[in-house]
Simulated scan of single mutants.
Amino acid sequence: MRLTPTSYIVLGLVRWSPGATAYDLERTINATVSHMWTIQRSQVYREPPRLAEAGLLTAESGGDGRTKTRFTITPAGEESLNAWLGEAVSEMPQLRDLAILKVFFGAGPQALARTRLLAHQARLKEYELLREAGGVAQSGPRLALEAAIAHERTSIRYWSDLAKSPS
Rank of each mutant, 00 (worst) to 15 (best):
2 R>G: 11
4 T>A: 07
4 T>H: 06
5 P>T: 06
5 P>E: 06
5 P>W: 08
7 S>M: 15
8 Y>W: 12
9 I>N: 00
9 I>C: 05
9 I>S: 02
10 V>N: 03
10 V>M: 09
12 G>R: 15
13 L>Q: 11
14 V>Y: 09
15 R>H: 09
17 S>M: 15
21 T>K: 06
22 A>P: 13
22 A>N: 13
24 D>Q: 08
26 E>A: 10
28 T>Y: 07
30 N>W: 03
32 T>V: 04
32 T>P: 08
32 T>E: 08
33 V>P: 00
36 M>R: 07
41 R>S: 08
42 S>K: 09
44 V>P: 01
46 R>E: 11
48 P>R: 13
48 P>E: 10
48 P>I: 11
50 R>S: 10
52 A>C: 07
52 A>T: 05
53 E>P: 05
56 L>C: 03
56 L>K: 11
58 T>A: 11
58 T>C: 10
60 E>D: 12
60 E>K: 08
64 D>T: 13
64 D>H: 14
65 G>K: 14
66 R>K: 11
69 T>S: 08
69 T>M: 05
71 F>D: 14
72 T>K: 02
74 T>Y: 12
74 T>F: 12
74 T>K: 04
75 P>F: 12
76 A>F: 01
76 A>C: 03
76 A>P: 05
76 A>I: 02
77 G>S: 04
78 E>G: 13
78 E>C: 06
80 S>R: 14
83 A>I: 05
88 A>R: 15
88 A>T: 15
88 A>P: 15
90 S>E: 14
90 S>M: 12
90 S>D: 13
91 E>P: 00
91 E>R: 06
92 M>D: 09
96 R>F: 00
97 D>W: 00
99 A>N: 09
102 K>N: 00
103 V>G: 01
106 G>S: 04
107 A>T: 01
109 P>D: 01
112 L>D: 00
113 A>R: 06
115 T>A: 06
121 Q>S: 05
123 R>P: 00
126 E>L: 01
128 E>K: 09
128 E>F: 10
129 L>N: 08
130 L>T: 14
131 R>E: 15
131 R>P: 05
132 E>M: 06
133 A>E: 06
134 G>E: 03
137 A>C: 04
137 A>W: 10
138 Q>M: 11
139 S>K: 15
139 S>G: 10
143 L>S: 14
145 L>Y: 06
145 L>I: 09
146 E>H: 06
146 E>P: 03
148 A>T: 05
151 H>T: 12
152 E>A: 14
152 E>Y: 09
154 T>I: 07
154 T>S: 13
156 I>T: 12
161 D>F: 06
162 L>W: 04
162 L>F: 01
164 K>M: 12
166 P>V: 07
